[in-house]
Design a protein around this nucleic acid. Structure first.
Lengths: 134, 134
DNA sequence: CCACTACGATTACACCTGTAATCTGAATGG
DNA sequence: CCATTCAGATTACAGGTGTAATCGTAGTGG
Protein backbone atom coordinates (compact mmCIF):
# COMPACT_ATOMS: atom_id res chain seq x y z
CA UNK A 1 0.00 0.00 0.00
CA UNK A 2 0.82 3.58 0.45
CA UNK A 3 0.81 3.65 -3.32
CA UNK A 4 0.72 7.38 -3.50
CA UNK A 5 -0.36 7.85 -7.07
CA UNK A 6 -0.24 11.62 -6.90
CA UNK A 7 -3.50 11.98 -8.71
CA UNK A 8 -5.29 14.10 -6.21
CA UNK A 9 -8.11 15.69 -8.06
CA UNK A 10 -8.64 14.37 -11.48
CA UNK A 11 -6.29 14.63 -14.39
CA UNK A 12 -6.21 18.39 -14.87
CA UNK A 13 -3.88 20.07 -12.41
CA UNK A 14 -1.83 17.93 -10.12
CA UNK A 15 -1.24 20.73 -7.61
CA UNK A 16 -3.17 20.84 -4.41
CA UNK A 17 -5.85 23.45 -3.94
CA UNK A 18 -5.57 25.40 -0.71
CA UNK A 19 -8.42 26.37 1.52
CA UNK A 20 -8.70 29.95 0.32
CA UNK A 21 -8.42 28.79 -3.26
CA UNK A 22 -11.16 26.31 -2.63
CA UNK A 23 -13.54 29.13 -1.72
CA UNK A 24 -12.89 30.64 -5.13
CA UNK A 25 -13.43 27.33 -6.83
CA UNK A 26 -16.75 26.94 -5.06
CA UNK A 27 -17.89 30.24 -6.47
CA UNK A 28 -16.96 29.14 -9.95
CA UNK A 29 -18.47 25.72 -9.56
CA UNK A 30 -21.71 27.33 -8.59
CA UNK A 31 -21.74 29.26 -11.81
CA UNK A 32 -19.21 29.79 -14.57
CA UNK A 33 -17.61 31.40 -16.36
CA UNK A 34 -17.29 34.47 -14.20
CA UNK A 35 -15.07 37.52 -14.13
CA UNK A 36 -12.83 38.28 -11.18
CA UNK A 37 -15.24 40.98 -10.09
CA UNK A 38 -18.13 38.54 -10.09
CA UNK A 39 -16.22 36.01 -8.09
CA UNK A 40 -15.32 38.72 -5.60
CA UNK A 41 -18.97 39.63 -5.43
CA UNK A 42 -19.59 36.15 -4.14
CA UNK A 43 -16.64 35.47 -1.87
CA UNK A 44 -15.38 38.83 -0.67
CA UNK A 45 -18.39 39.30 1.55
CA UNK A 46 -18.18 35.92 3.24
CA UNK A 47 -14.46 35.85 3.75
CA UNK A 48 -13.73 39.51 4.22
CA UNK A 49 -11.42 39.62 1.23
CA UNK A 50 -10.56 42.47 -1.06
CA UNK A 51 -10.33 42.35 -4.82
CA UNK A 52 -6.54 41.92 -4.96
CA UNK A 53 -6.85 38.83 -2.82
CA UNK A 54 -9.32 37.27 -5.20
CA UNK A 55 -7.11 38.18 -8.14
CA UNK A 56 -4.18 36.48 -6.53
CA UNK A 57 -6.15 33.35 -5.80
CA UNK A 58 -7.50 33.26 -9.35
CA UNK A 59 -3.99 33.61 -10.74
CA UNK A 60 -2.69 30.85 -8.55
CA UNK A 61 -5.52 28.58 -9.58
CA UNK A 62 -4.80 29.29 -13.22
CA UNK A 63 -1.14 28.50 -12.64
CA UNK A 64 -2.12 25.29 -10.94
CA UNK A 65 -4.19 24.32 -13.92
CA UNK A 66 -7.42 24.36 -11.94
CA UNK A 67 -8.97 27.20 -13.91
CA UNK A 68 -9.09 28.15 -17.56
CA UNK A 69 -9.17 31.75 -18.67
CA UNK A 70 -10.91 33.05 -21.67
CA UNK A 71 -10.43 36.68 -22.65
CA UNK A 72 -13.60 38.69 -22.84
CA UNK A 73 -12.73 42.20 -23.96
CA UNK A 74 -10.29 43.55 -21.50
CA UNK A 75 -10.98 41.14 -18.69
CA UNK A 76 -10.91 37.42 -18.24
CA UNK A 77 -13.60 34.88 -17.76
CA UNK A 78 -12.63 32.06 -15.45
CA UNK A 79 -13.89 28.52 -15.77
CA UNK A 80 -13.07 25.51 -13.60
CA UNK A 81 -10.94 22.91 -15.29
CA UNK A 82 -11.43 20.35 -12.59
CA UNK A 83 -14.86 19.12 -11.70
CA UNK A 84 -16.17 19.70 -8.24
CA UNK A 85 -16.92 16.02 -7.91
CA UNK A 86 -13.31 15.15 -8.71
CA UNK A 87 -12.03 17.58 -6.14
CA UNK A 88 -14.49 16.51 -3.51
CA UNK A 89 -13.83 12.88 -4.24
CA UNK A 90 -10.09 13.40 -3.96
CA UNK A 91 -10.33 15.25 -0.70
CA UNK A 92 -12.68 12.70 0.80
CA UNK A 93 -10.43 9.92 -0.26
CA UNK A 94 -7.42 11.65 1.22
CA UNK A 95 -9.16 12.03 4.55
CA UNK A 96 -10.38 8.47 4.66
CA UNK A 97 -6.95 7.17 3.72
CA UNK A 98 -5.14 9.33 6.20
CA UNK A 99 -7.37 8.88 9.19
CA UNK A 100 -9.24 5.67 8.71
CA UNK A 101 -6.89 3.44 6.81
CA UNK A 102 -9.06 3.83 3.75
CA UNK A 103 -12.14 2.37 5.42
CA UNK A 104 -15.26 4.45 5.23
CA UNK A 105 -17.16 2.71 7.98
CA UNK A 106 -15.12 4.17 10.85
CA UNK A 107 -15.61 7.62 9.38
CA UNK A 108 -19.31 7.13 9.48
CA UNK A 109 -19.07 5.87 13.02
CA UNK A 110 -17.28 9.03 14.04
CA UNK A 111 -19.75 11.28 12.35
CA UNK A 112 -22.49 9.38 14.06
CA UNK A 113 -20.93 9.83 17.48
CA UNK A 114 -20.56 13.51 16.84
CA UNK A 115 -24.22 13.68 16.06
CA UNK A 116 -23.32 14.83 12.62
CA UNK A 117 -25.93 12.48 11.27
CA UNK A 118 -29.53 13.51 11.29
CA UNK A 119 -32.40 11.08 10.91
CA UNK A 120 -32.67 12.25 7.34
CA UNK A 121 -29.02 11.50 6.77
CA UNK A 122 -29.47 8.04 8.15
CA UNK A 123 -32.45 7.39 5.96
CA UNK A 124 -30.62 8.66 2.90
CA UNK A 125 -27.57 6.59 3.63
CA UNK A 126 -29.69 3.50 3.98
CA UNK A 127 -31.23 4.23 0.64
CA UNK A 128 -27.79 4.62 -0.88
CA UNK A 129 -26.66 1.35 0.56
CA UNK A 130 -29.68 -0.46 -0.78
CA UNK A 131 -28.96 0.88 -4.22
CA UNK A 132 -25.35 -0.02 -3.95
CA UNK A 133 -26.11 -3.58 -3.13
CA UNK A 134 -28.27 -4.03 -6.13
CA UNK B 1 -24.86 27.71 10.47
CA UNK B 2 -21.27 28.52 9.81
CA UNK B 3 -20.97 28.75 13.57
CA UNK B 4 -17.26 28.33 13.55
CA UNK B 5 -16.71 27.34 17.11
CA UNK B 6 -12.95 27.17 16.75
CA UNK B 7 -12.76 23.99 18.74
CA UNK B 8 -10.96 21.90 16.23
CA UNK B 9 -9.64 18.97 18.12
CA UNK B 10 -10.81 18.77 21.65
CA UNK B 11 -10.05 21.18 24.42
CA UNK B 12 -6.34 20.75 24.71
CA UNK B 13 -4.46 22.71 22.07
CA UNK B 14 -6.40 24.96 19.76
CA UNK B 15 -3.70 24.97 17.09
CA UNK B 16 -4.09 22.92 13.98
CA UNK B 17 -1.97 19.85 13.51
CA UNK B 18 -0.20 19.70 10.17
CA UNK B 19 0.18 16.67 8.00
CA UNK B 20 3.71 15.85 9.04
CA UNK B 21 2.85 16.43 12.65
CA UNK B 22 -0.08 14.10 12.27
CA UNK B 23 2.25 11.27 11.33
CA UNK B 24 4.07 11.79 14.61
CA UNK B 25 0.82 11.85 16.51
CA UNK B 26 -0.20 8.58 14.93
CA UNK B 27 2.95 6.95 16.20
CA UNK B 28 2.22 8.18 19.70
CA UNK B 29 -1.41 7.24 19.55
CA UNK B 30 -0.42 3.74 18.63
CA UNK B 31 1.68 3.51 21.76
CA UNK B 32 2.74 6.02 24.36
CA UNK B 33 4.72 7.39 26.00
CA UNK B 34 7.65 7.12 23.65
CA UNK B 35 11.01 8.81 23.31
CA UNK B 36 11.94 10.78 20.22
CA UNK B 37 14.14 7.93 19.10
CA UNK B 38 11.27 5.47 19.37
CA UNK B 39 8.98 7.73 17.41
CA UNK B 40 11.63 8.06 14.75
CA UNK B 41 11.93 4.31 14.69
CA UNK B 42 8.31 4.22 13.62
CA UNK B 43 7.98 7.16 11.27
CA UNK B 44 11.43 7.83 9.81
CA UNK B 45 11.25 4.68 7.71
CA UNK B 46 7.86 5.40 6.20
CA UNK B 47 8.37 9.07 5.55
CA UNK B 48 12.06 9.19 4.82
CA UNK B 49 12.72 11.52 7.70
CA UNK B 50 15.82 11.97 9.81
CA UNK B 51 15.96 12.36 13.56
CA UNK B 52 16.15 16.17 13.54
CA UNK B 53 12.94 16.32 11.61
CA UNK B 54 11.15 14.20 14.16
CA UNK B 55 12.59 16.32 16.97
CA UNK B 56 11.28 19.46 15.33
CA UNK B 57 7.85 18.01 14.85
CA UNK B 58 7.75 16.81 18.43
CA UNK B 59 8.75 20.26 19.67
CA UNK B 60 6.10 21.92 17.59
CA UNK B 61 3.49 19.54 18.85
CA UNK B 62 4.51 20.27 22.42
CA UNK B 63 4.29 24.00 21.70
CA UNK B 64 0.86 23.48 20.25
CA UNK B 65 -0.23 21.69 23.37
CA UNK B 66 -0.84 18.46 21.52
CA UNK B 67 1.83 16.51 23.38
CA UNK B 68 2.97 16.38 26.98
CA UNK B 69 6.58 15.75 27.89
CA UNK B 70 7.73 13.88 30.90
CA UNK B 71 11.45 13.83 31.67
CA UNK B 72 12.91 10.38 31.87
CA UNK B 73 16.55 10.70 32.81
CA UNK B 74 18.16 12.82 30.17
CA UNK B 75 15.50 12.43 27.51
CA UNK B 76 11.82 13.07 27.25
CA UNK B 77 8.88 10.81 27.02
CA UNK B 78 6.11 12.16 24.83
CA UNK B 79 2.44 11.51 25.40
CA UNK B 80 -0.52 12.73 23.37
CA UNK B 81 -2.64 15.33 25.09
CA UNK B 82 -5.41 15.18 22.57
CA UNK B 83 -7.21 11.96 21.90
CA UNK B 84 -7.05 10.46 18.47
CA UNK B 85 -10.79 10.30 18.36
CA UNK B 86 -11.04 14.03 19.03
CA UNK B 87 -8.59 14.81 16.27
CA UNK B 88 -10.18 12.44 13.84
CA UNK B 89 -13.61 13.71 14.69
CA UNK B 90 -12.54 17.29 14.20
CA UNK B 91 -10.94 16.63 10.86
CA UNK B 92 -13.90 14.63 9.61
CA UNK B 93 -16.24 17.34 10.68
CA UNK B 94 -14.16 19.97 8.95
CA UNK B 95 -14.23 18.05 5.71
CA UNK B 96 -17.92 17.39 5.84
CA UNK B 97 -18.63 21.02 6.65
CA UNK B 98 -16.36 22.36 3.97
CA UNK B 99 -17.31 20.06 1.14
CA UNK B 100 -20.74 18.73 1.88
CA UNK B 101 -22.46 21.49 3.75
CA UNK B 102 -22.25 19.45 6.90
CA UNK B 103 -24.26 16.53 5.52
CA UNK B 104 -22.65 13.15 5.79
CA UNK B 105 -24.79 11.38 3.27
CA UNK B 106 -23.24 13.01 0.21
CA UNK B 107 -19.83 12.10 1.51
CA UNK B 108 -20.88 8.51 1.68
CA UNK B 109 -22.30 8.73 -1.80
CA UNK B 110 -18.97 9.98 -3.10
CA UNK B 111 -17.02 7.28 -1.37
CA UNK B 112 -19.42 4.77 -2.79
CA UNK B 113 -18.95 6.06 -6.31
CA UNK B 114 -15.23 5.89 -5.91
CA UNK B 115 -15.54 2.30 -4.92
CA UNK B 116 -14.08 3.18 -1.59
CA UNK B 117 -16.69 1.00 0.02
CA UNK B 118 -16.20 -2.71 0.17
CA UNK B 119 -18.99 -5.15 0.84
CA UNK B 120 -17.66 -5.42 4.36
CA UNK B 121 -17.85 -1.67 4.75
CA UNK B 122 -21.41 -1.66 3.60
CA UNK B 123 -22.34 -4.40 5.99
CA UNK B 124 -20.65 -2.62 8.85
CA UNK B 125 -22.28 0.65 8.05
CA UNK B 126 -25.65 -0.98 8.01
CA UNK B 127 -24.93 -2.44 11.39
CA UNK B 128 -23.95 0.98 12.68
CA UNK B 129 -27.10 2.50 11.36
CA UNK B 130 -29.23 -0.13 12.97
CA UNK B 131 -27.59 0.55 16.29
CA UNK B 132 -27.97 4.25 15.86
CA UNK B 133 -31.64 4.01 15.27
CA UNK B 134 -32.21 2.02 18.41
C1' DC C 1 38.60 14.04 35.41
C1' DC C 2 37.84 14.44 30.43
C1' DA C 3 36.71 13.48 25.67
C1' DC C 4 32.79 11.74 23.54
C1' DT C 5 28.14 10.82 22.89
C1' DA C 6 23.33 11.24 23.05
C1' DC C 7 19.67 14.45 23.86
C1' DG C 8 16.77 18.48 23.44
C1' DA C 9 16.95 23.39 21.93
C1' DT C 10 17.99 26.80 18.65
C1' DT C 11 18.49 28.30 14.15
C1' DA C 12 17.90 27.78 9.14
C1' DC C 13 15.73 27.93 5.01
C1' DA C 14 12.85 27.15 1.06
C1' DC C 15 8.15 26.71 -0.23
C1' DC C 16 3.23 27.36 0.47
C1' DT C 17 -0.59 30.22 1.98
C1' DG C 18 -3.34 34.22 3.20
C1' DT C 19 -3.72 38.76 2.33
C1' DA C 20 -2.80 42.74 -0.06
C1' DA C 21 -0.37 47.04 -2.34
C1' DT C 22 1.56 48.58 -6.42
C1' DC C 23 2.65 48.50 -11.34
C1' DT C 24 1.43 48.41 -16.15
C1' DG C 25 -1.13 48.57 -20.05
C1' DA C 26 -5.41 49.07 -22.48
C1' DA C 27 -10.17 51.06 -23.06
C1' DT C 28 -12.79 55.20 -22.73
C1' DG C 29 -14.79 59.74 -21.93
C1' DG C 30 -13.96 64.24 -23.11
C1' DC D 1 -5.21 62.75 -28.44
C1' DC D 2 -4.87 62.58 -23.45
C1' DA D 3 -6.12 61.70 -18.65
C1' DT D 4 -8.66 58.60 -16.04
C1' DT D 5 -10.00 54.21 -14.96
C1' DC D 6 -10.13 49.49 -14.63
C1' DA D 7 -8.24 44.86 -15.45
C1' DG D 8 -4.65 41.62 -14.92
C1' DA D 9 0.41 41.06 -13.55
C1' DT D 10 4.04 41.69 -10.43
C1' DT D 11 5.79 42.21 -6.02
C1' DA D 12 5.39 41.95 -0.97
C1' DC D 13 5.37 40.05 3.27
C1' DA D 14 4.20 37.58 7.52
C1' DG D 15 3.10 33.13 9.25
C1' DG D 16 2.92 28.01 8.66
C1' DT D 17 5.14 23.71 7.05
C1' DG D 18 8.61 20.31 5.65
C1' DT D 19 13.07 19.23 6.36
C1' DA D 20 17.24 19.60 8.48
C1' DA D 21 22.04 21.29 10.41
C1' DT D 22 24.12 23.04 14.36
C1' DC D 23 24.55 24.29 19.31
C1' DG D 24 24.80 23.45 24.14
C1' DT D 25 24.77 20.53 27.76
C1' DA D 26 24.54 16.54 30.63
C1' DG D 27 25.85 11.93 31.44
C1' DT D 28 29.51 7.96 30.46
C1' DG D 29 33.45 5.12 29.29
C1' DG D 30 38.02 5.16 30.06
Amino acid sequence: MTTRVEDQQGEAGGERISDAEHAVMEALWKHSPQTAAEVCETVCKDRGWSMPTVKTLLSRLVQKGALATQPDGRRFLYTPLIARSAYVGGESRRLVDRLFGGRAAPLLAHLAQEEALSQDDIAEIERLLREMKK
